[in-house]
């Protein structure tokens, strides 16, 4: 208990919580919309691209974040333009993503040979994150950008959900479907670059997909599931950071992902239990059919 009480006396933990909270909120909100639009694969590709971006910046001697944001946003917009109606093909995304990752490996080699020092650690930092060493300035910037993403999403959430659920009808009703598709992928790209700094580029997908999947299972109404997804993501980060602080052998990224995965599993189990009890309460011959979702 005493460890918990003194937790926030550490500056590195305060910074991790500050950055983690807003990054998680942005990732949770973006994630739910990605699930709704069946674009989870896109986020996956973007997250891996962020790896290459980071190393491009390092190889050129720039700030790592410049590379992160520039590449994810560019690739996000590129994928939106390449895909039909801003919904790209799986093979195209996967192929491009593998190639960009290959470029990242090349840049990693260039960076390591140029600096000629033990930089195995740099690749691990980018791949798996190091939120405990984020530093004050970067933490504030990450929180501010995360907040900005959340506000923008709040503004476009309603037409975006409409366009995601029924594109054609939304287009007829005057929703700028294509523009929203572009804008949303750009926001996803920013959120991915943000999350790279907290959990690392390889683990973004977990932070984006798990809370969203849990929220979608628990609540059918998209307007309630969207904030729930954000809340669950924040909860994962808070709990994960606390666990990583108390058990130092666990890396914070692992702890965050473990909590998020646990939440999704819990949501799946409650969903199953609820469905079973509803089925039992239905006598044969009644007119109501239980809504059976998924296979």
């Amino acid at each position: 208990m005493s460890a918990l009480a003194t937790m926030f006396s550490h500056a590195y933990l305060r910074e991790a919580f500050l950055a983690g909270t807003f990054v998680a909120l942005a990732a949770g909100l973006v994630g739910y919309l990605l699930v709704l639009r069946a674009q989870v694969f896109t986020a996956d590709a973007l997250s891996h691209v962020s790896f290459t971006g980071a190393f491009a910046a390092l190889a050129l001697g720039l700030d790592l974040r410049v590379g992160l944001f520039a590449t994810t946003v560019l690739v996000g917009l590129g994928m939106a333009a390449a895909g039909r109606r801003a919904k790209p093909d799986d093979v195209v995304i996967g192929g491009a993503f593998a190639w960009v990752l290959g470029l990242g490996v090349l840049l990693l080699t260039l960076y390591t040979t140029r600096r000629s020092a033990g930089n195995g650690a740099a690749s691990v930092t980018v791949l798996f994150g190091s939120v405990f060493g984020i530093g004050h300035g970067r933490a504030v910037a990450a929180a501010a950008i995360g907040l900005g993403v959340c506000l923008l999403l709040a503004i476009v959430a309603r037409p975006l959900i409409f366009a995601s659920l029924d594109e054609t009808v939304a287009a007829v009703r005057g929703v700028p479907v294509r523009l929203l598709g572009f804008g949303f992928l750009a926001l996803t790209a920013v959120a991915a670059a943000e999350a790279t700094q907290v959990v690392g580029s390889l683990l973004i997908l977990g932070l984006v997909a798990a809370p969203a999947g849990a929220a979608a299972r628990l609540v059918g109404n998209p307007y309630r599931a969207l904030p729930l997804s954000g809340a669950l993501a924040v909860l994962s980060v808070w709990a994960g950071l606390t666990i990583a602080y108390l058990v130092p052998v666990l890396p914070p990224s692992f702890a965050i992902l473990a909590v998020a995965t646990g939440l999704l599993v819990a949501a799946l189990l409650t969903g199953r239990l609820r469905r079973r009890s509803r089925r039992r309460s239905l006598a044969p011959g009644t007119d109501r059919v239980p809504a059976v979702r998924g296979g």
């Binding site: 994630g31 989870v40 986020a43 977990g206 798990a210 999947g213 998020a260 998924g294």
Partner: peptide, 9 residues
Amino acid sequence: GHESALVGT
């Protein structure tokens, strides 16, 4: 969407 969230997680 829902299944890909699961696989992704």
